[in-house]
Design a binder for these strands. Sequence first.
DNA 1: AAGATTGCTGTTACCGCTAACAAGATTTAC
DNA 2: GTAAATCTTGTTAGCGGTAACAGCAATCTT
Lengths: 317, 317
Amino acid sequence: MATLEDIAKVAHVSKMTVSRAINHPELVRDELKTSIFSAMHELNYRPNVAAKALVNNKTQVIKFFVLEDIDITEPYYMKLLVGIAEYLAKYQYSLQLMTDEHLDIGVSDGYIITGMRDEDYDWIKRLELPVVLFGENRWHFDFVDTNNEMGTQLATRYALEQGYDRVVFIGIDVKEPFEYSRENGYIQVMQENQRMPEIHRFANHSHLAMDFIEATWSRITPNTCFICASDRLAFGIQKGILQMSPEIATDYGVIGFDGVFLDQVATPQLTTVEQPMYELGEACAELLLRKIKDNHYPLEERLLQPKLKIGGSTRKK
Amino acid sequence: MATLEDIAKVAHVSKMTVSRAINHPELVRDELKTSIFSAMHELNYRPNVAAKALVNNKTQVIKFFVLEDIDITEPYYMKLLVGIAEYLAKYQYSLQLMTDEHLDIGVSDGYIITGMRDEDYDWIKRLELPVVLFGENRWHFDFVDTNNEMGTQLATRYALEQGYDRVVFIGIDVKEPFEYSRENGYIQVMQENQRMPEIHRFANHSHLAMDFIEATWSRITPNTCFICASDRLAFGIQKGILQMSPEIATDYGVIGFDGVFLDQVATPQLTTVEQPMYELGEACAELLLRKIKDNHYPLEERLLQPKLKIGGSTRKK
DNA sequence: AAGATTGCTGTTACCGCTAACAAGATTTAC
DNA sequence: GTAAATCTTGTTAGCGGTAACAGCAATCTT
């Protein structure tokens, strides 16, 4: 494996100049840079990450904590993780994945954390390295998330455009910012259209949503669309309706939220608000690396735009 | 952060002796070791991974390639990944996750690869670092996998014990060792019990299995159990049967294979052959680290035992 | 009892890279 | 025209570890 020294010999300069050509190119004559870069290319130079890390007192490692129960959330985080990992790899960072803060053995340059419960903010705020959270929060940590409000706005508007008479929101029964945002998006669009909001909330389990449909079926008029705060709930609503009447796509509508795996498993496939998981992962990584480089980087809350993915669970006008 | 030098001062030895106490304890007097370890404890010593990596000409990075389309397989690999990552972290390795062999930028100490297609073995065999594959293969690479044969044996035996008259195998239409093993397990148990095997194969999509049920429903007698090569197919079979008759758990049986997410989404939950994904991940990592340490380590093919997870898609005797 | 062997610890050099400083050449200032 | 400022490159030292070797007692041979 070629080192700076090898490049230096071929380009007839000192290895310091090579190092500078990489890290502070503005300090090196263009002429030299040309021959240095061509030597690097010729010798297929790969920087030695360990040496760089040692001298910079960095680790080139990022820790990713998934604090939520992974059995339940499995599909959700895989693409996020890929986004994070591939972005990091580009900058020669690697990853340690942890599902429990207690087995935090080694050291790293920063943290990406997701699935926080209220009690977690306690130790998170004591961390001494840069942190980026995945998911809205009210504690003034940098975060990246889907624009949840916009997501339910898109969904609600679409439902109204398709001509559903009644548009009901099925929320998740948690006091989390993401849930408030999703409810807000729905409420706003309803009010803009002089419609009365109607919200029901359940723990995020499909069978609860299904039970709700079965229990209240007599009061659920045709031409109703359910805007759900998760695909899981949407899945349950859809199942409940199918159980009661096989005519879902025409008489009823269901819109989910997430667009991760479950929407495709449903029959018909769910119309859903798709979160750009891969891009969210990249954004987490990018923001974190920026904070590592510049430790006065101001607080940033980055919201990426979701997309409405039309499936068969809503009528086509 | 304390260094070897700091420990050395406190313990009144040279830093070399401290290094030895860690890596070759048999060369250091017990007396010194005691005071060295207590100094390490006192100063909360953490080895500097970069320094170690530099001097050993290692990277402390493992690459994990997921070559399969991640959209389809998302849930499947998450727990495997957690198993790999947590095991690696214990030994101060970190991870780079790649979904495409071409964006292989940096360097690493070894590879874990999964989702290989036939054409991939070409470049895999040219890799110059230790490799462990996740998944049976016929090319004499070290691998870790579930004992697929045992999985379908468990399933088939269970189906027979529950008294199903007809036990049919629904396979995945690929020429892969894992599929042959699963079919073999089924065939063996059928023959042991003087039953005639009956196998149908489809691409691994639930709707194909569902269509199959609908198309051949007239010939599907009650008291039949379907042993499926994946939860995806089982999910489709179950849906098909539910469409035709709501009495699945009593008149028919469905057993899946994987036990990853999808089995829990089904209603009723699928009886399935559960792969120990977390442990498989750990095993991949362990085997790889062993091969990195000892490059004459002999070829190893490690099969972990699956478990039958009883759900509501089969009758209880 | 002298030389050889063993057991344990310290010294040196180096892994590949970069910050800090040194130093020469060129330009600018007055 | 000379001192100062600027630009560009090289030299040195050190990041935190470990292998290789050196050195010195204690023990073993014969």
